[in-house]
């Protein structure tokens, strides 16, 4: 099909499930109008869905649009076609993790470190979580950027400085099961 050859290099199958979700979109723009984060997006939600349908995955995963979704569900509530837009964004986010998309590196690492901390202790240990994040980001200047905030939080006792001991992760089984269900290697 020539129209497809002219666009993106990714196979159909990657975007296929997402396309299926938004197939009957009529580009009315209700999602864009109702999105509270659209001001910060490079493509508006409407354009993004159009790109999904047009299979333009390269440009799609270069953009920040879907990673900025804060799951407020307004677009899902308002969409006249009743499309599961928030679920579709979620699917795009998961796709980006699997594809290790560069634009989303920060948020992916952030999420991973967050989950790692939970896996180890059954809750987030802030200090450890920050350490993990800084190490993963491999940017020596990053801690300096967060120093004023850290100082503020510590003064209020929001963040404790104690180094957590590496204990047996109580949620290991849960994570294991979830990974199995989501078929994450």
């Amino acid at each position: 099909m020539r129209i497809r050859e002219q666009q993106g290099h990714m196979g159909n199958d990657d975007l296929g499930p997402v396309q299926e979700m938004v197939r009957s979109c009529i580009q009315c723009g209700t999602c864009t109008g109702s999105c509270p984060n659209s001001f910060a997006m490079d493509y508006t939600p409407r354009t993004m869905w159009r790109m999904v349908l047009r299979n333009e995955s390269e440009a799609l995963f270069r953009s920040r649009t879907f990673s900025l979704c804060s799951f407020c569900y307004t677009c899902t509530l308002r969409c006249p076609r009743g499309l599961p837009l928030t679920a579709a964004v979620n699917a795009l986010k998961q796709l980006s993790v699997r594809k290790k998309v560069d634009v989303c590196r920060h948020s992916i690492l952030f999420d991973q470190c967050f989950l790692e901390s939970i896996r180890r202790h059954g809750r987030v240990r802030e200090t450890e979580f920050m350490m993990l994040y800084f190490m993963a980001m491999k940017n020596p200047l990053l801690p300096v950027r967060f120093a004023p905030l850290a100082w503020k939080l510590m003064r209020k006792g929001k963040v404790s400085l104690q180094i957590p001991c590496r204990s047996e992760g109580r949620l290991e089984t849960l994570f294991h099961k979830t990974a199995k269900r989501e078929r994450i290697p």
């Binding site: 009315c28 723009g29 209700t30 864009t32 109008g33 659209s38 307004t74 308002r78």
Partner: peptide, 21 residues
């Protein structure tokens, strides 16, 4: 050619505010 997703009322003027993309 745009669809209005919802609208709000200005509390002072009682105008209807339409937001659209």
């Amino acid at each position: 050619r745009e669809r209005i997703h919802s609208l709000v009322q200005d509390t002072v003027t009682q105008d209807v505010m339409l937001r659209y993309a």
